[in-house]
Amino acid sequence: MFCPSKDDLIPQALALLPRGRAWGTHEGGPGPGTTLYRYWAAVCDVFAFACRRLCALRLEFWCATQSETRDLWMAEYGLPDECDPYPDLCAKVAAQGGARCEHLVSVAARAGWVIDCADATDACGDTADCAAADCAEAAGGPPLNTIVIRVDLGASDAYAGGIETAPFADALVADGSLACDPDISPLQCVLDRVIHAHLAVEYILIPPPIYLMADDETHLVDEDGRLFVAE
């Protein structure tokens, strides 16, 4: 893009003057030493400044070259936001998004979480060895417009919480859980920004294995509570 300077603009301004001796244009003037020339040179100085600013404005139309309007770009794209899956401005501008599981997996991976998506039909209903007491329902499963997300806590670097919190003496309540649920609120905060609003989300947490050391042997307890002894 050509951005004219003051020296480029002066001949163009003088060429627009009327023809005649009174204007000094009868012999190709006015010349540099004349009052008329100095006047239009001063005017062209202002025109050149305007041209420079217009040329600079052109760079603000693209994220890669913007500089002066960064605050406007940040406000337009809702940044900064600690839960945003695209904390980098230009990455968010270029993001295509989508409702496919592959997109959600990539978004979670950037935040340090390992997830995958389960089909709603994968949920357990009245399958043998799958129902919990007082919790089973025939052909149970997530309703339509539900996305089921499995979170691999053991493989997720961003997960910093423990699997269980031991109960304190004299602090139990009836029907209370002996363990606190894993905290995946940072993951939920990120995914809430990209999952379509019409979808309900059901999270399935896959806890990492728990290692217990005793008598110089390693006892491995898997996610189903089965005990293995490593030789």
Score class of each variant (00 low, 15 high):
A108V: 03
A108G: 08
A108R: 03
A109H: 03
A109Q: 11
A109M: 03
A109S: 11
R110P: 00
G112S: 05
G112R: 10
W113Y: 14
W113A: 07
I115G: 11
I115M: 09
I115P: 09
D116M: 00
D116P: 01
C117M: 12
C117K: 10
A118S: 13
A118H: 09
A118C: 08
A118L: 15
A120P: 01
A120G: 14
D122I: 00
D122K: 11
D122E: 15
A123D: 15
G125L: 10
D126Y: 12
D126S: 15
A128P: 11
A128W: 06
D129A: 15
A131T: 13
A133Y: 14
E137D: 13
E137N: 07
A138R: 10
A138S: 14
A139L: 15
A139K: 08
A139V: 05
G141A: 12
G141L: 10
P142K: 07
T146M: 08
T146Y: 04
T146R: 08
T146P: 05
I147C: 09
V148Y: 03
V148E: 03
V148H: 04
I149C: 09
I149Q: 05
R150C: 11
V151K: 08
D152I: 04
D152Y: 12
D152N: 15
L153A: 12
L153M: 10
L153T: 02
L153C: 11
G154K: 08
G154E: 13
A155S: 14
S156I: 08
S156F: 02
S156T: 04
S156M: 08
D157V: 09
D157S: 13
A158C: 03
A158I: 04
A160M: 03
A160R: 14
G161L: 00
G161C: 08
I163Q: 12
I163M: 07
E164N: 08
E164W: 08
A166S: 12
A166N: 07
P167R: 08
P167D: 05
P167K: 10
F168R: 14
A169R: 03
D170T: 02
D170I: 00
A171E: 11
A171Q: 13
L172R: 10
L172P: 00
V173W: 02
V173L: 09
V173A: 13
D175R: 12
G176Q: 12
A179L: 00
A179F: 05
A179M: 02
C180S: 13
D181S: 12
D181E: 11
P182L: 06
P182C: 06
I184A: 05
S185K: 06
P186T: 06
L187D: 01
L187M: 12
L187W: 03
L187E: 02
L187S: 06
L187A: 10
L187Q: 06
Q188N: 09
Q188I: 01
Q188V: 10
C189H: 06
C189W: 02
V190D: 02
V190E: 06
L191I: 07
D192T: 05
R193A: 12
R193Y: 04
V194Y: 06
I195V: 15
I195W: 01
